[in-house]
Every structure is written in C-alpha cells, then in structure tokens.
Design a protein around this nucleic acid. Sequence first.
DNA 1: CCCGCAATCAAACGTTCGTTTAAGTGCACT
DNA 2: AGTGCACTTAAACGAACGTTTGATTGCGGG
Lengths: 218, 218
Amino acid sequence: MHEASTLETGTSPRGTESREQIFACALRLFARQGFDRTGMRELAREAGVNLAMVNYFFGSKQNLLREILDTFFSAYIAIARHELHSATTPQLRLRRFIRAAIAHFAEHQDHLIIAITDLHHDDEELSSYKARWAEQMLHLLEQQVCAPLRQNGKADISAKTLSPLLTSMMASRFLFAPVIQRADNASVVPDIDAYSDMIATVAVYGINAFTASAQEPL
Amino acid sequence: MHEASTLETGTSPRGTESREQIFACALRLFARQGFDRTGMRELAREAGVNLAMVNYFFGSKQNLLREILDTFFSAYIAIARHELHSATTPQLRLRRFIRAAIAHFAEHQDHLIIAITDLHHDDEELSSYKARWAEQMLHLLEQQVCAPLRQNGKADISAKTLSPLLTSMMASRFLFAPVIQRADNASVVPDIDAYSDMIATVAVYGINAFTASAQEPL
DNA sequence: CCCGCAATCAAACGTTCGTTTAAGTGCACT
DNA sequence: AGTGCACTTAAACGAACGTTTGATTGCGGG
C-alpha cells in the first residue's frame, strides 16, 4: 500500500526512469483510448515495465489519473492567476490569458483531452477535487473580468457562464482534432499562433459586443 | 445474433416498452458515468429488465451506443441544414443556427455529453462513422458561412476551425455543468434563452470582428 | 384449441479487470 | 563481506465484464 517516495535526492533515484515511462505512456494511452479502455497490463507493456510497477509507483490507477490532472490543472490555474492580474483593462487581461492558456493547451494536449473527456466521471474524490479547481477559476474570472465588465452597460455575464465558455473555445481545436482530421485530412490547419489570435479576437470582441450597449445590428 | 426488428406495425409491438426503458436508462447512465463504466447488468437492473434483453433489442453494447449517437447527430445535421439555408446574410444564418442547435442540445443533454466525451474512442467503426457526420457539417458551414465571409476583408476562417469552435461554444454550458454546479451551487444560472442569445451574440460579433477589416482596438 | 413467435428468463461461457502477495535482484553504504 | 533498501518480478486473487445459450412464458391468428 505504501506508495514509493517522491522525494528528490538531488540526483534522480534509481526508479525514476520507470516512473516517467509509465507516466508518459499513461498520458498517451488515456488521451487516445480513454481512461477506462486502457488496462494496467497494456500500460505496463507499452511502458516496458512489469505490471506491478504501476501501482508500486502510483498506488492505484485512480491515483495515476489524479496526478495527471494535478499537473495540468495547477499549471492552468497558475497561468490564469498570472495573466488575469497583468494588464490594465479586462479586455487586455482576457486576451493575454487566452494566448497563454492556448499555448499551455497546445503543449499538453493529452492532459487537456483527459481532463475534458473525464469531466463526467462520477467518482466522488475526483469530482470534489475538480470542483476546487473550478472554484479558483470562477473567482479569478469574476474579480478580474466579469466585475469590471459589469460597468459596461447593457447585459452582464457571470463567471459561471464565462469560465466554461472560454475553456471550451480554447480547447475546441484539440478536442475535435481527431474527428476533423479524419473528415478532411487534405487541407492545412492554421498554426497555433494564428489559432490563439483568432480565439482571443472572437472572445474579446464577442463578449464586448454582448456586454456593451451600442452595437450596429448584424 | 438476429437483432429484434424495428419495424413499426402502426400500434407498438409488445416489446416496445422494454426497449424504450433500456434506451432511456442507457442515455442517463452513459452520460453520467461514461460508456465504459456502465455495465450491462447495471443497465438492465436500472431499466427493470433481464440482462439478455439489452443484446436482444440492440445486438451489442456498441450498437446501443451507435443508436444513441445516430439519433443525436442526424437531428443536429438536419437543424444545421435547415437553419443555414434560411436567412439572407451569413450572420443571420449563423445566429438562427446557434439558437436552434442550443435548443436541441438543451433538450438532449445526455446525447450531447455522450457524443463529446466519447469523441476519442478509437473504435474504427465509430470513428469513421463520426467522421461522416463531421464532413457534412464542414461542407454546410463552408458553403453558407465561411465562403460568404471571405469577401469581408481582412482575415478568413476555415470551416475546419469554425465547426469545432461553434459546437464547443454551444456545448460549454452542458459540458461543464456538473463541475460548475458543484463548485458554486448557490447562484442561479441564466435560463436557456438568455444563454443561447449570449452565445449567438458572442459568436456572430466575435467572428465578424475577426473577419472584417476595420475594428476599434480593444 | 393450439400453433407460432416475440419476449423474457436464469445460468453459464471465457476473458479481462485492478490489485495484492511473496520472492528475488542488485546497488549503496558500513 | 554483509546488511538494508529500492526496485523488479511472476503468479495469483476475486470480481466484473460482454456475450451466448436453451428453456419458458404468454399473447394473437389459423
């Protein structure tokens, strides 16, 4: 039952390579086939280690999933905290947050896919755990974006609506990538910078049009 | 192996009630716990039927999933086909499509969640199947929205980018609902009409800002 | 009345699942 | 040389999985 210690002794402990192999393969397999469809034996075989090593290093399959979600969410929140406190206007803060978050998504696509497609796992521990991350994001967006925008005029938008909307918009390319590529593998996709610019522009101007008073009708 | 016939004899065949019970319970369970985490025995127990009835009516668990996806996607495409051919400008067509699609999502939230969280199942049959739906949506958006917008000026947006973006935006509320509600169960959520208005406004004005030339900087 | 067939049932099929155990390996340090 | 500890291993555990079989029920039409 006692999970292997994670303490760093300056130089890597002997088992580090195996542990990292397992973690890397779990990322790939969970994202491509889903958490439940990936068996411990398949994971161990792919990582080139013995079956028992997975639970030796991570305690259980659930714990392995939690460690994956942990690395992703904590970095996501850190980005939000940093970028949403940076600029002078809520529009500029939002744009900087989107660009940084999409860069994070692009670099950790497997984490992202696992996090979203496993959103509806009704495991009690993981659910309350994800709710705590959501709380922090809701609070950040409310303080730094929604509240300032409320003085704009017409309609207001709540963080409970904005947070899922932004995350969905930013993730859309990665979430649907396998289906879209299969449906139309001919044409080229815009590079990641053009994509994040486009999402940021749509979000900032779209939200501004919704919250601000005067708009020419479309 | 011979699946029960689906032909309608005017009045319902005798087994219809059981079949519909199974289908309804599968929707609820697959959406709440995921396809893989839901066992045939659990599904049969919940539906109040014998275990063997599931495969008697649906042939296999995969076929049951496919029937769920089928009813959802075919209605989704029908809505897109209808609304995207309706109005005079691409902006108006887009707005009408978004409002109708969100109404469809709201009425079939379980279908939606199953479709999205199972997007990454690498089952060959289901993948090529979903790709065919995606092709139709790509073609519709390209013809009725992207191509007309391309004459706008500055930047253009491809259907390969727009289709996932729109679907993600419209689905955001339903996809993240369980996490958000758990993180903040106090406040009220906007009703579905206000939500679809907001998504439509953000999408139409946001995309217009991205594709049109002159914009005041934000 | 009874034959036919759709529907229902209990039971078992073989497989795979996540987890645990107990033995074994080889380096590091005294 | 020898002891301790981190790592690795093969094997087995009971449970749950999706599917199939063969018998049984009960209504509708000849």
